[in-house]
């Protein structure tokens, strides 16, 4: 996220969560943009980390978490990389080494009691070097009627995240699906195999570098290429 990687970010600006750079205003990648906005270079910035006080019940939950982590011998700044609050939702970016301890606390602490994990899913940000693959966990607390999100980022070549199946057995199939589609290996999962694609399928389909895989549609006298290869302006 330095200027060398993203020349669009001016000097002196604090570290932004930039996941890529948009070229051109209308998405035309094949030089067909005659609007004059084709030379636009715009960083894609995700919402910035939040600073305390967060407001509402976010502070309560964050305090509980920090206390619990402290009691477990883990300083909060080490486990939690950053906290993002966007549209009334709180996301804890957690380091993968401390994920298991973190979710155990989420489940067990009386003030937190996030009994239900709504599953894992992955997101691939190829533009965010060193943190390409994100695993996103959503938790619901039925007792306190709250939701949080936990996000773990790993680099492409080293996509290993500890499995939380021991704490939340519901993530069994979700982790298999994330492995299937993104190639994130969940360490400690009882049976990490492909679940949606055939067992011998090569590649991980939902990554951004995996093509959509369609075939051109034939009409009389012409073909229309599949959606990822079409000329498009959005």
């Amino acid at each position: 996220m330095t200027d060398a990687h993203h020349p669009a970010v001016p000097q002196g600006v604090e570290e932004l969560d930039i996941i890529g750079v948009r070229h051109g205003a209308f998405g035309a990648a094949d030089g067909g943009d005659t609007s004059g906005f084709g030379g636009l270079v715009d960083p894609i910035v995700m919402p910035a980390p939040a600073i305390r006080p967060f407001g509402g019940w976010f502070d309560e939950v964050s305090d509980e978490l920090e206390l619990a982590l402290q009691a477990g011998g883990l300083p909060a700044t080490e486990a939690i990389e950053k906290v993002v609050i966007y549209k009334d939702e709180i996301t804890y970016h957690v380091r993968r080494e401390h994920l298991l301890a973190f979710v155990t606390m989420l489940r067990d602490e009386p003030g937190l009691r996030f009994e239900m994990c709504l599953g894992v899913n992955g997101v691939h940000y190829p533009g965010e070097t060193g943190r390409e693959l994100h695993a996103v966990y959503h938790f619901l607390s039925i007792t306190h009627n709250r939701r949080v999100r936990v996000e773990v980022s790993v680099a492409d070549g080293d996509a290993v995240i500890p499995s939380i199946v021991a704490v939340y057995p519901t993530c069994d199939w979700h982790e298999r699906e994330t492995w299937d589609f993104f190639g994130i290996v969940f360490d400690g999962h009882p049976a990490l195999t492909r679940i949606m694609m055939p067992d011998d399928w090569p590649g991980h389909p939902q990554r951004k570098d995996y093509p959509l895989g369609g075939i051109p549609v034939e009409f009389k006298g012409g073909t229309i290429p599949p959606a990822d290869q079409r000329r498009s302006y959005n």
């Binding site: 998405g27 894609i44 599953g119 899913n121 699906e177």
Partner: peptide, 18 residues
Amino acid sequence: SSGGTRPYRVHFRDPSFT
């Protein structure tokens, strides 16, 4: 969303799956 006109990623947590 990456700020564009297309979703960057959409994931459905389907109840039947779980």
